[in-house]
Simulated scan of single mutants.
Amino acid sequence: MLKPKKIGLYFGSFNPIHIGHLIIANHLVEYSNLDEIWLVVTPHNPFKKKKTLLEDHHRLELVNKACEHYKKLKSSDIEFKLPQPNYTINTLIHLSEKFPENQFCLLMGEDNLNTFHKWKNFDVILKHHPIYVYPRKTDNGHENQFSNHPDIVHIEAPIMEISSTHIRKAIKTGKNIRPLLPAEVWNYIDEMNFYRK
């Protein structure tokens, strides 16, 4: 019988995806027992107007382009097909039913772990899906209720301080931020004239 594939789910709006996202995802898949990481593009909430958020299919295309050269990283539009507003627990149930041969794990920054107890059905998530935590620059380095949980794996990874917000503002003001984006991502943003207005 085949061993189930361990898939890490990295959720984000990826508006746009940048080298910080790739460095973390690639580090986690190379330095853990995960077989693949799926970058799950969070859809636009139809009830929230956000001018700076690119349409779903454009953000997915940016993630596709960013993952082209990484065979262990894949893009996922799984949440586009789920009712909104969506909760992580619903996505995990849906994926587990659709791909029963895989074991799905959750990736999150250390800062999110501090508020994880507020997530819908967090206890169910933890019971069925291991959580892989990467470090974030944060003032609260104190322990929380999940610090020593057996199903929470802490991975030493580079701390990234690149933000999509900074990139969007820089593009709008005409700054050159090409080093912060994979070449294919920059080319698509440039060609489509995104974030300039």
Results as ranks from 00 to 15, higher is better:
Phe122Gly: 05
His129Leu: 04
Gly20Leu: 10
Lys118Pro: 01
Pro150Glu: 10
Asp56Lys: 06
Lys50Gln: 12
Lys197Trp: 15
Asn45Leu: 12
Leu126His: 05
Leu107Ala: 11
Ile89Tyr: 06
Phe104Leu: 09
Ile37Ser: 07
Pro4Ala: 12
Ile171Pro: 12
Val63Glu: 13
His44Asn: 15
Asp123Gly: 07
Tyr87Thr: 01
Ala25Gln: 11
Phe122Glu: 12
Ser163Arg: 02
Val124Met: 12
Phe104Ile: 01
Lys50Leu: 11
Ile24Lys: 08
Pro46Gln: 02
Glu143Thr: 08
His149Ala: 09
Ser147Gly: 02
His58Lys: 15
Glu68His: 08
Lys197Glu: 14
Lys3Tyr: 15
Ser76Glu: 04
Arg196Gln: 13
Asp56Trp: 07
Leu53Trp: 08
Ile89Met: 03
Ser96Val: 06
Arg196Val: 08
Lys65Ala: 10
Pro83Val: 00
Pro100His: 07
Lys74Arg: 13
Val29Pro: 10
Phe80His: 02
Lys6Arg: 14
Leu181Trp: 00
Arg168Lys: 07
Tyr70Asn: 05
Ile167Thr: 03
Asn45Tyr: 05
Asp56Met: 06
Ser75Lys: 05
Lys169Cys: 11
Pro130Trp: 08
Leu73Asn: 07
Met1Lys: 13
Thr88Asn: 06
Arg178Ala: 04
Asn148Val: 04
Ser13Ile: 01
Asn26Tyr: 06
Phe122Arg: 05
Lys137Ser: 13
Gly12Gln: 03
Lys71Gly: 13
Phe194Arg: 02
Asp35Arg: 01
Tyr132Pro: 10
His94Asp: 15
Val63Ser: 07
Val40Gln: 09
Gly20Lys: 02
Val29Met: 11
Pro100Cys: 06
Asn187Phe: 03
Asn144Phe: 05
Ala157Lys: 01
Pro100Trp: 08
Lys172Glu: 13
Thr88Glu: 09
